[in-house]
Amino acid sequence: MKRGSDRQTTLAGSVSLKGIGVHSGGPAEVALHPADAGTGIVFAVQHPETGRDIEIPAHWRAVTATSLCTVVGDPKAGGVSTVEHLMAALRGLGVDNAVVELDGPEMPIMDGSSAAFVAAIERVGLRTLSAARRYVRIKKTVRVDQGNAWCELRPFDGCRFDVTIDFDAEVIGRQRLVVDLTPDAFRSELSRARTFGSVQDVEKLWSMGFALGSSLENSVAISEGRVLNPEGTRWHDEFVRHKMLDAVGDLALAGLPFIGAYHSYKGGHRMNHAILVELFDKAGADAFEIVEGQFDRAPVMVSGGEHRPLMAAGQSAS
């Protein structure tokens, strides 16, 4: 699998988006800014009480919750929730370095997909940097099982996502999708796939004070065996496409793109995070290596089993 460049990228300019937070229902704004090589993706927020500026690396060690969405940092001290759709857009389009500035604790949900983030990134374009791009190459299969659900990272000469979902709801049922991740494939096959859920589940979340911003404008709603959105679904299998979009965003929290294949059955945010913990914390130094270079030439190994997040100078991984 050939990449157009083995050098890191960033945004060619700054761009902002406004929307609402899917859980708070309140206004939410995000600005994306260029960053130097080696920065990675960093969230810049303010502490809700002290007003102190905080930087949170987009990294699996910073994840604090995965039940309803993916959260990085402590929400009570400037953490950020629902990062997966933006992270998917950044990884899908090949953005290595950016500062993501937020005005509150939630990313705007937009239409429930990555489409608005893709459009914003493409409005300003990308700039190629002088530093070599680095990758996490999977060297042996790593697996996580949770009941009858499972996920694996396997060796593969490219970046492949193979996702299967299996729901009792007849309108969803069992769906499988396999995509070799490239910017073109992400744009056309995944970026417009929206989040989804049953009306009964959303009503239960409302009663608990969650999903207050959820609506037909940002979710595919299912009730009594049918899709309630007047426009229907964007694909017949939009549900598995969105699950794959989530997986791309969640696995982007590895801090580097993968050379390998991700397979999941009945997965979700929790399992997507669990496979990163398994790979980097539990599987051992022979499970992966950090390499530089294009897939079509022999990569240069720059480290073995040790993996540290890319982040702004002066920031720690804790």
Rank of each mutant, 00 (worst) to 15 (best):
A44G: 05
D74C: 01
A44Y: 04
T66A: 13
I54E: 14
A98H: 08
E55H: 11
V100G: 04
G25Y: 11
V80K: 07
V30Y: 01
V72E: 13
P75R: 00
K76C: 11
E101A: 14
F43Y: 10
L86H: 07
H23Y: 06
G51P: 12
I41R: 10
H47S: 11
A58K: 01
L102N: 14
P27W: 02
R91P: 11
A89E: 03
A35T: 06
K76M: 14
V45R: 12
P75A: 02
T70I: 00
A98P: 06
A44P: 00
P75I: 02
G19S: 10
V95Q: 05
V95A: 06
A31K: 04
L86P: 05
I41S: 02
W60A: 03
H59R: 04
L32Q: 03
T70V: 08
D36R: 14
P34C: 15
G79F: 03
T64F: 09
A37K: 02
E49G: 11
G78S: 04
A35Y: 01
V42N: 08
R52E: 15
I20Y: 03
A35S: 05
D36V: 07
E84N: 14
K76R: 15
L32P: 07
E55F: 08
V45Y: 13
G78F: 03
A65I: 07
G21S: 10
G79N: 10
H85P: 01
S67D: 13
K76F: 11
L68E: 13
G73R: 01
D36M: 09
E101L: 10
G79T: 11
E29G: 15
V83N: 06
A58D: 05
H23R: 03
V42C: 03
A65P: 13
G73D: 00
I56H: 09
V100A: 01
V83R: 03
K76D: 15
D74T: 13
G51A: 13
P75M: 04
A65V: 09
P57R: 08
G78L: 09
D96T: 03
A88N: 04
I54W: 10
A62H: 10
N97K: 00
V99A: 05
G73C: 04
S81K: 15
V95C: 07
A98W: 02
G25E: 04
G79V: 08
G38K: 02
H47E: 11
V30Q: 01
T82A: 15
H23M: 09
S67T: 09
E55A: 07
P27V: 02
G79I: 12
G51E: 07
G19F: 00
A88M: 13
W60L: 07
A28W: 04
R61W: 12
E29L: 11
T64G: 08
L68V: 04
N97G: 01
R91V: 12
A31I: 09
T50E: 05
A35H: 02
R52I: 15
T70D: 06
L90D: 12
A28S: 15
P48D: 07
V83E: 06
P27K: 04
E49P: 00
S67V: 06
C69W: 04
L68F: 05
A28H: 06
V100K: 01
